[in-house]
Amino acid sequence: AEDTGVRVELAEEDDGKKSSIALKLWVEDPKKLKGKYKESGAIEFTFDLEKEVPEVVAQEMVESGFFHESDAKTVGKSIRDRVALIKWRRERTVSAAA
């Protein structure tokens, strides 16, 4: 995954079954952001791996004042990368069990 300067991690153990999972996002390198960034710590949120779209969550974070509009794409990509990794690990676990 590209280093966007925005870190997204699991905020809870992934049991491999739940479709909704808690994620935690924070900025590691504010210089990589285009917009003015006010340090606001780690943002924890729930994401439905099956139904939701990372870019929508990023837009909600912009609308909630965490990020500038010009960084919506960067935040969305960071969430998308982590979601892809979670899904890949789940598929790998399932195929290993099969």
């Binding site: 924070w26 590691e28 710590g41 780690a42 943002i43 924890e44 949120f45 729930t46 909630s64």
Partner: peptide, 27 residues
């Protein structure tokens, strides 16, 4: 640790807390 909540109009809850300590040490 202090944390704050922001609820987006679409209903999603954002819980803000300090960046995890361990990560800060890594930086």
């Amino acid at each position: 640790s202090p944390s704050a909540q922001v609820v987006h109009s679409a209903g999603r809850r954002f819980i803000v807390s300090p960046v995890p300590e361990a990560r800060l040490k890594e930086q």
